[in-house]
Nucleic acid binder design. Structure first.
Lengths: 190, 190
DNA sequence: TACGGCATGTAATCGGTTACATGATTTA
DNA sequence: TAAATCATGTAACCGATTACATGCCGTA
């Protein structure tokens, strides 16, 4: 490699939360960390969570990298408002173009089920009941949200993940029902 | 609170990976970190991943807490073999009895879909195709594993999580197919 | 004006990830 | 016996979670 291509800073490879911040800001215009929290809570928050403090730390990292620009107000709370720079948009697009690796379920319920042989006898029943309750509640919530979204319609990309959520919840309910009904079930044809 | 109840060490609240180690050791007898890796790779690894080095660090933490006992061999590699102590079993059972909080999808594909408005025009198509490939491959793998497991049958608890995996993969395939077929789809009845 | 809750941030800690480094075993 | 692979571990870094601390604002 010649001196002609000094290779721009080696790109520290941002994590998912960085792109969530970039994406949310790109979508909803400039905002503060608290705005980010509110936006996340009613959208991505449903399938990707993180503590609030990340939404203070992450924008600062991104500012340092030039992907966001920060404006701190003088009076009152001196709060920081961020907006995406052109470089930030480029980074976002680059990330969107890269292939996404495999999703992970990260389901503590499944984990406990897997090890349930070492628990109390009725542990599985309790677990199934509890998981059913959780998933039913979540399903109801998704259905509300879905109904609500189809009215104040954004682009379909923002509704689709919710549809996957619905599919997942229905599958979960089917699964835990099956578990609850005991191992009595005969061979279940695929 | 009187001096009569000195309250045993405040229990540092272990993370999931700690219980994976405890559970795997409880299930498969004593073993080394490498054994843990192999066991995980063909079971829990499918719905809960972590780097190999965790399987060296975690057992040491657990030993320090008295939940595992370590035996280091003298000759050769001086490798460490761990086995679960009674206290470890108690901790495992206590964890199993606690309610599990809600699972998270953590799906980068969904995330990218959600923000896809800011990418190239064909980004969604590419994403859908790529995700379909991933999920089809995974589904095939699960089906192989399922067939294999039903032969060398362990308890059903160890097969059930895999069944959830199957349900999830089928749902995912349905979802991304729907995405791929474009927003042309009319109202999809639930 | 006092109080409660909303808003805004920082500090310390810790688990998880990457990278490094090396020893043992098998096989060509 | 050299090479390749399997096995085993450590160190450093960094993102993420928890906890702390405080400021503003609406309202009683």
């Amino acid at each position: 490699m010649t001196a002609a291509s000094p290779a721009p800073p080696p790109e520290p490879a941002l994590g998912p939360s960085a792109y969530i911040v970039l994406g949310l800001l790109a979508q909803n215009g400039p905002g503060t960390s608290y705005d980010l929290k509110r936006w996340a809570d009613e959208s991505v928050g449903f399938f990707w969570t993180f503590p609030r403090s990340q939404l203070y730390a992450e924008p600062q990292r991104l500012s340092a990298l030039g992907l966001l620009q920060e404006a701190q107000e003088d009076g009152g709370r001196r709060r920081r408002t961020y907006h995406v720079t052109p470089a930030g948009l480029v980074a976002l697009r680059a990330w969107l173009a890269q292939p996404a690796d495999f999703p992970e379920l990260r389901d503590l319920g499944l984990l406990k089920l897997f090890f349930s042989a070492h628990g109390e006898a009725h542990a599985v029943t309790a677990l199934a009941a509890e998981q059913l309750a959780l998933h039913r509640a979540r399903l109801a919530e998704y259905e509300r949200l879905h109904a609500h979204l189809t009215s104040c319609l954004p682009g379909p990309e923002q509704v689709q993940p919710l549809r996957m959520g619905l599919l997942y919840e229905r599958a979960s309910i089917a699964f835990w029902t099956e578990v609850q009904d005991g191992s009595a079930a005969p061979a279940t044809p695929s």
